[in-house]
Design a protein around this nucleic acid. Structure first.
Length: 670
DNA sequence: CACCGCTCAGTTTTT
DNA sequence: CTGAGCGGTG
């Protein structure tokens, strides 16, 4: 077990009041959190069940859990909570749903469900879904700021806001009727609940006596309020964050929450972690010098004892094709020369579209790679279908799921039937599923159609019964067989290969569900809970990770790279309009772009290179590119520019290009 | 309902 | 310039 430095030790041992740890990149913040949990349990006699650590991603939570487990003796970690904000919120709602007027088995709507619901509402209210995304943003922002529909209606000034507020009101009512919540509600509802029911809050405060929050700079207003309410005047907490790594303001994160803490908790102690255990000092100097261009409340200087390191190279390329080619050749050469696995190399970029060409080049040179991001597993049709079956199974009020499922596969229930069922259900204040076999429906629908609906409902009720038995997963597998889903997939797929892949996803989903049920320690997990966890992506990634053991160059966006590290890092597209992004230049949010560059630089352990193209095809036109202003902000003495010989008039002196020639020669040799 | 052609946007994204 | 998504048509 590694020794903590004095600052880290101070952060771990300080438990007499609220603590803010400003942890620079690579300064061992996860160690501090995990060691602190162990310290609380082993030295302070606080039982693990009273400790709650919160992260933003499942991955971070998983890593933290594993590291804590390795520090504690068996049994000591019993009842410890390490979860994401959303999972914590889910756990609260799971126990307190009755106070919120919800029923068990409530659905969690994902991005797709939300859009479908909003489209539906806007069709009804405004006969069109123009500006859906904008309205969705308004609603999301309100929810992040803890503003409910009534307040939004009052506050709305512009016509757009008023429209959005009206839609918001309908949206929230419909969610309630469907016995559903969205992701934002998982945070917002617990806060509202605690505000309205102090006795419930008291119960939770009793359960959570010490709180630790990771990536605090990424919290939004609701999340901060949730933390604040739980810790309240007892103020037993540690939050860890880095204002320089705040790159999610665009989705509601408020790095100001770091400052807010000082006002809200005057006794706040601040500890700064400035020793970096990841990068060479040259890389850190670059990072420091760059970020010094941003205003700071807390000044920090990262330093390391990892040696001076290689110069940082800036590779000038003719065009986007040359850029990708150059990176591919660099990696190929370095891989051969150093014998390091491809997984030691990372290519980072601002936007996902930049990955395309890069991918082609890597393929061309037969370099294995791993691409993170891309189409989410949950966006896949077959996954959505099966998820909808699962949801309808545990939540018959979920009309969204009902509509998705009713004709998949074909049950000869058309839009007219569904519209009449919907109207009838609406008039009776029932869900479509509940109304599907009501006698009164016969007055609006022909017997043929009521029979089809009734048959579906009877079948579904049967499946639900089976699920309540000994082997719920087995029951779900039979359900998939029962509807002959495989046949449906085969009919709709373009090839057998695609069909196999899709069926694989279906079984994978059920396996993940099985794993969630099985790994549950206290045996309290119901199938309802497990499905909710599935929507929150928990467990799924873990399985995918296990399958992803293969060696390969890692390609990802700068955003996705936060929290990771690589020996060799390439940051591509270092150009004005790309990094900083054009829209950020226009919106004057350069500082966040600078932090994005900062995050990218601080991912590198030993070698860092930037690339940019002098010309680039954009929207069908060949345009001249300007190197990113961030390159100019870096210390010139640590940079080594390459590829300037074609443009000697540029501000930087041309340097020898021996490296490129040597590389080519080496490639020829083998 | 399937397919074709037109229009329009073209950042980052977890839960 | 592309690719997605939409609307119109057969």
């Amino acid at each position: 077990m590694s020794k903590l430095n004095p600052r880290q030790a101070e952060a771990v041992a300080y438990i007499s009041g609220p603590l803010l740890v400003l942890a620079g990149a690579g300064s061992g913040k996860t160690s501090v959190i995990t060691r602190k949990i162990a310290y609380l349990v082993q030295q302070c006699g606080i039982r693990a069940q009273y400790i709650c650590a919160v992260t933003f991603t499942n991955k971070a939570a998983r890593e933290m859990k594993a590291r804590v487990a390795s520090l504690l003796k068996a049994g000591e970690g019993r009842g410890l909570t390490v979860s994401t904000f959303h999972n914590l919120g889910l756990n609260i709602i799971r126990r307190e749903y009755a106070h919120l007027g919800y029923k068990p088995g409530f659905s969690i709507f994902d991005e797709g469900d939300i859009k479908a619901l909003l489209t539906d509402i806007m069709q009804k209210e405004y006969q069109g879904d123009d500006g859906l995304d904008e309205i969705k943003n308004y609603i999301g922002n309100w929810k992040n700021d803890l503003i409910l529909p009534d307040e939004a209606l009052e506050k709305a000034r512009t016509p757009k806001e008023q429209t959005a507020a009206v839609v918001y009101l309908h949206y929230q009512r419909t969610l309630k009727a469907y016995n559903a919540v969205d992701f934002d509600d998982l945070i917002l509802m617990p806060v509202k609940l605690f505000q309205e029911h102090p006795e419930v809050l008291e119960r939770w405060r009793n359960r959570i006596r010490y709180m630790l929050v990771d990536e605090y700079q990424d919290t939004n207003t609701s999340q901060y309020l949730l933390v604040k309410m739980l810790v309240q005047e007892r103020a037993q907490f540690t939050v860890v964050g880095d204002d320089d790594q705040s790159i999610y303001a665009w989705r509601g994160a408020r790095p100001e929450n770091l400052m807010q803490l000082k006002d809200d908790f005057p006794s706040l102690k601040v500890v700064m972690l400035e020793q970096n255990y990841r990068s060479t000092s040259r890389i850190l100097k670059c990072a420091n010098v760059l970020i010094a261009n941003n205003p700071h409340v807390f000044e920090k200087q990262l330093w390391s004892e990892m040696g001076h390191g290689d110069p940082i190279r800036v590779l000038r390329c003719k065009n986007e094709d040359g850029e990708a080619e150059r990176i591919a050749l660099e990696i190929l050469t370095l891989h051969l020369k150093t014998q390091r696995p491809y997984a030691d190399f990372a290519i980072l970029y601002r936007g996902n579209h930049q990955a395309k060409l890069m991918e082609l080049k890597l393929q061309h040179h037969q370099i294995p790679y791993r691409l993170s991001g891309g189409t989410s597993f949950f966006a896949r049709q077959e996954v959505k279908d099966v998820m909808s079956y699962l949801r309808l199974l545990v939540n018959p009020d979920d009309d969204n799921a009902f509509l998705r499922v009713i004709n998949v596969p074909r049950r000869e229930i058309g839009s007219t039937t569904l519209e009449k069922l919907g109207n009838y259900a609406g008039s009776r204040d029932r869900s479509m599923y509940a109304a599907a076999d009501e006698i009164g429906l016969g007055e609006h629908l022909d017997a043929r159609f009521t029979e089809r609906l009734g048959r579906f409902k009877r079948w579904m009720d049967g499946v639900r019964k089976n699920c309540a038995g000994e082997d719920p997963i087995g029951a779900l597998r039979s359900m998939v067989m029962d509807i002959d889903y495989e046949n449906w997939i085969r009919q709709n797929a373009s090839s057998d290969k695609v069909a196999d892949f899709r069926m694989g996803n279906v079984w994978f989903l059920l396996d993940a569900l099985k794993n969630i049920l099985e790994k549950d320690e206290d045996g309290q997990m119901t199938i309802e809970d497990a499905i909710a966890k599935l929507v929150l992506r928990d467990m799924l990634e873990r399985q995918q990770e296990e399958e992803e053991g293969a060696d390969g160059v890692q390609m990802m966006t700068l955003h996705a790279s936060k929290g990771l590290e690589f020996p060799y890092v390439f940051i591509m597209g270092m150009e004005e309009e790309i990094l900083p992004h054009r829209s950020s230049i226009e919106a004057d949010t350069i500082e966040e772009e600078r932090r994005l560059a900062y995050v990218g630089i601080t991912r590198a352990r030993q070698t860092l290179a930037f690339t940019y193209a002098t010309r680039r095809k954009q929207y069908g036109e060949l345009i001249d590119c300007t190197p990113s202003r961030f390159l100019d902000e870096l210390p010139p003495e640590d940079l080594q520019w390459e590829g300037l010989e074609e443009a000697p008039q540029e501000q930087k002196a041309a340097r020898g290009n021996d490296a490129l020639a040597a590389m080519r020669a080496m490639l020829k040799r083998g």
